[in-house]
Design a binder for these strands. Structure first.
Lengths: 343, 343
DNA sequence: GCGGGATTGTAAACCGCTTTACTGAAGCGT
DNA sequence: ACGCTTCAGTAAAGCGGTTTACAATCCCGC
């Protein structure tokens, strides 16, 4: 009767069956003991015979760690974060770690709650992705929590390894591309300065524009969130204000989608009347009308690296923590950018 | 000094500080004891003062459950599954449950491994999503595992609650739409008959076509996987075979994307030369060129319902388990369908 | 002023595994 | 034959809670 009753097949039963002590079995399983072939065989047989599976809860309690890492993201139903989650999960799995997933969905206090609940006890480490400015609470909590890697968006003041894409370079590449084609009036649609991604992308853009036109150009800015909805609002505002630019740099795919949606529905031709560059380049942008030119983030690489950072960092010496790592972006040229109608 | 040293603030310390026994604190926390205001206040103060957080591992071991549910999906970096994950996570969070996430990525044996490892001990239940036919192993394992809800794609023979969208109705709606516009030669691009989604969608399509044209019509079928790549291959085959249909029913967004990609790049006009209906309708299909008509799956509803099933099912009476539940689909009309050029 | 039911609280077993400290016995050199 | 080092294996103390089975106290009515 090789089938174990689901209820309780403990180390105990195995030990009895193999006529050794619990300790012996445990140590054999954990590699800290070499048994003579005969004994080990007896134990192995017993295990197979009883269908023994160690109880992870007991093991975790005993070992004081969970072989589980936590992942906090703003929203899973968003291809950018989903891809990030996928990459982290894969890498975690590769290392035999489980993944506890949590979405904050912009519910205020949620991030704090997860940090408290998770970080204190429950998981061996945390990959933390936020998407809005912090008033300092997050940073404080992270600092006294330990084993947190901050990804994609900064939490200023947090003393932890940080991993971003090269936002400034992304802005710069977009700027070079646009100005190279003759654009001088460019609209940046993105997040507020308090967010590192927004600030740096904008700075990169401005650097490129200034380098090309030194002063004789004009970069405007609509500040909001990385959402389709903000993209739509920006699109309408752009139209309402009489199209103050010949090109738009949308700081996320979402924004670009909203923007395109409105512009198309108002009959504005892209790129003939206005050029658009997106950021992220995760979805099937190449099938859009028109296919969207965008800065591509190395999302999978970010996810993988995040886990590596979490696992490989030497957390004992908090002072020597690596602070910030940037992963390269690239410009993917499609058909949403053309020279301006009136240069 | 209200800050607890990260190491060990146990129930013990709280009890000592409040000058009661460990039991009392525990019972108060778990609601099974009404304390006089004075005592309770003392305890609460101690907890706050020490910054006590219960150790989840100990609690889980003690209670014999984890307040965690497992979710196994084929691939997280896919908007369909990502949305499903998001919905499940949200619903789990709402009920105070954590989520342990695992992707199989078509690695064979992975599903089995997760079922074994997770289901036996580690989580309180499992939401299981597969995307390929089963040879019977999965079903067997699920049957002796308990507390598994099967979602989106069937595992034939598994005795568990099952939750799908109304695939047959989806095929039917697509068929009605297409035939209503005059199409008689229709190509179905989807999965093999062994998969319930493919079989039922195809059946629904055929039902609609037969009802309309009774015999004087022609439904062909390309069988493959739900991937962009298969969509591309199907597109090329369609062209190679001299366009054997005036309309294509693509059984997933992915397939539709691959299809559109190839057709567009070969200069085939959609919908003038060939009409396309997709399935799932998760991504920004409305921005495609042309905006894609598709059958929409209620993905979020599926995710939420899956968790509800898992939690609310009475698992003690395995015999009376609900077997199959269907959630309604709807047709979203955009611009990828037109009457055939040569009816 | 006493039996008896609440009310408040406690001691101790237990959850299942890990790990430290220790023992009995065998192997070995001399 | 003796001391010394492995080798093979064990008992028992945690890990940090939950929970059962009791005990002490108090408030009653009679």
């Amino acid at each position: 009767m090789p089938m174990a009753q689901n209820s309780t097949v403990g180390l105990r039963h195995v030990a009895d069956a193999a006529r050794v002590s619990v300790t012996t079995v445990s140590r054999m399983l954990n590699g800290s003991l070499e048994l003579p072939t005969e004994t080990r065989h007896r134990i192995e047989t017993a295990i197979r015979h009883l269908g023994y599976e160690p109880n992870p809860h007991a093991r975790r309690l005993s070992r004081g760690r969970s072989d589980t890492i936590g992942l906090v993201v703003p929203d899973i139903a968003n291809l950018f974060f989903a891809t990030l989650v996928a990459a982290v999960e894969e890498e975690a799995d590769r290392r035999g770690l489980a993944l506890s997933l949590h979405a904050t969905l912009n519910r205020p206090g949620r991030e704090l709650a997860y940090l408290k609940a998770l970080a204190r006890n429950h998981v061996d480490g945390l990959v933390f992705v936020t998407n809005h400015p912090d008033d300092g609470e997050l940073a404080a909590l992270i600092n006294q929590t330990g084993k947190v890697v901050i990804v994609d968006e900064d939490v200023p003041g947090a003393k932890a390894p940080k991993l971003f894409c090269d936002n400034e370079q992304g802005g710069y590449l977009a700027g070079v591309h646009l100005t190279g084609l003759g654009h001088r009036r460019i609209l940046f649609v993105g997040g507020p300065d308090a967010m590192i991604s927004a600030r740096r992308r904008y700075l990169g853009l401005v650097r490129a524009v200034t380098a090309r036109w030194s002063g004789a150009a004009y970069v405007q800015r609509y500040v909001g969130a990385y959402t389709v909805d903000f993209g739509r609002r920006a699109g309408r505002r752009f139209l309402d204000e009489g199209r103050p630019a010949s090109a738009i740099f949308a700081s996320s795919d979402e924004i670009a989608i909203g923007l395109v949606e409105v512009l198309r529905s108002e009959g504005v031709s892209i790129p003939a009347e206005v050029s658009i560059v997106g950021f992220d380049d995760i979805g099937p942008l190449h099938l859009f009308a028109p296919p969207l030119t965008a800065i591509r983030q190395p999302v999978r690489a970010i996810g993988e690296r995040a886990l590596a950072l979490l696992v490989d960092t030497d957390w004992l010496h908090r002072d020597t923590l690596p602070t910030e790592e940037l992963l390269p972006v690239e410009l993917v040229v499609r058909n949403s950018v053309a020279p301006p109608a009136t240069p």
